[in-house]
Design a protein around this nucleic acid. Structure first.
Lengths: 148, 148
DNA sequence: GTTATTGCAAATGATTTGCATTGAT
DNA sequence: ATCAATGCAAATCATTTGCAATAAC
C-alpha cells in the first residue's frame, strides 16, 4: 500500500467516525503514514510544527488519544520511552516483533487467539495484545547489550 | 502458595540480586503478596504509609522500577489508570485475562511462544507479552458497558 | 449558522534528580 | 566502617483542563 493511500485511509476512518477533517488531523495522518516506527507525543508535535508552527501540544495529545481509541493508531508503552504511537494496519490483523533498541517492528500473521478455545472464567473478550520484544539483526550486530 | 511464602520469595529474590533488605522493601513484598490485583504507585505509597508514615514517594518509585526490572513485579499500562504493578508468579510461566473494568485477572497456562517456530527477520527474542482484555463475569452482569 | 476543534495558558499529575542522612551489611 | 538506600525538596516531564477564538460542516 502506498503512503498516500494509507494517509487517505486514516482520513477516511476519521470522517467515518464523524470527526471533522482539520488541517492538523490531515497532517497527523501524513506523519504517521510516512513513519515506520513509533513516535512519542513530542516526536509528533515536533514534526507537526514543521508544517504548522502554531500547533499546540494539547491538540496533538487529544488527537493521538482519539485516534488510538478508534484503532487507527496503536500504542505501546516502552519502559524507557513512555507511551508511543504508530499507524495501525487497518486491513488485516497481525502482531509484532519489536526491537527494544531501535523500535523497528516486523509483523507476523500468527494470532494466538485462534488457539484460545477454552479460557478460564467467563470473560467477554474485548481485545488482546501479543508482542514479542527482542533485538533486531542490525542491533545485535551493533553489539547492543543494554536493554534501553 | 501462602501469602507469607510469596512474601518471603520476593524478599529472597531481592537478596539474591544483592539488594539490601530494608523495612520499606519488606513492606513492599508484604503489600504485593497480599494484593490480588494491580496497584498504581500511588496505591502502593498510600498502603505503605499506613505502616511507615514517613516513607517517601521516590522510594516507592525506585523500588517499583527495580522490582519490575528483576521480574518480581509485572507491570501493565492501563489506558485510563496509567502504569500499574502486580506481583509476578516466580514459579511458573503463564499469561492473563484482565478485566478492563475491575482489573481482576485470571491466569491461563497457554503460551503462544511454544507455537512460534518461525519468525520473520532474525530477532534475538528477549521477552514477550500476551494479554487478553475483557469484562469478567461480575462486571458483565453489572452491566458495565463503557470501557474506562 | 451551528457546533466541533483549536490554541492558549495554566493546572495538575507523574516521574526523576541531587544530596545529606540513615541504616543494612 | 562502608556503601547502598532513604527522605526531602525541588526540578523536570507528561498530561489535562477551561475557555474564548476559529474553522469545518
Amino acid at each position: 500500500m502506498t503512503e498516500k493511500q494509507q494517509e487517505q485511509d486514516m482520513v477516511d476512518a476519521m470522517a467515518q467516525s464523524g470527526w471533522r477533517i482539520t488541517d492538523q488531523r490531515r497532517s497527523l495522518a501524513r506523519i504517521f503514514s510516512g513513519t515506520e516506527g513509533y513516535l512519542s507525543p513530542k516526536d509528533v508535535y515536533d514534526q507537526m510544527r514543521l508544517t504548522y508552527p502554531g500547533v499546540s501540544f494539547d491538540t496533538v495529545y487529544r488527537n493521538l488519544r482519539m485516534l488510538s481509541e478508534m484503532g487507527v493508531l496503536e500504542q505501546v508503552y516502552f519502559q524507557e520511552g513512555g507511551l508511543k504511537f504508530k499507524a495501525n494496519c487497518l486491513h488485516h490483523h497481525h502482531h509484532h516483533l519489536i526491537c527494544v533498541n531501535c523500535e523497528k517492528t516486523l509483523t507476523f500473521d500468527y494470532c494466538p487467539m485462534n488457539q484460545m478455545l477454552s479460557l478460564p472464567g467467563n470473560f467477554k473478550i474485548i481485545n488482546h495484545r501479543f508482542e514479542i520484544y527482542g533485538l533486531c539483526e542490525e542491533c545485535r550486530q551493533d553489539g547492543v547489550s543494554s536493554l534501553d
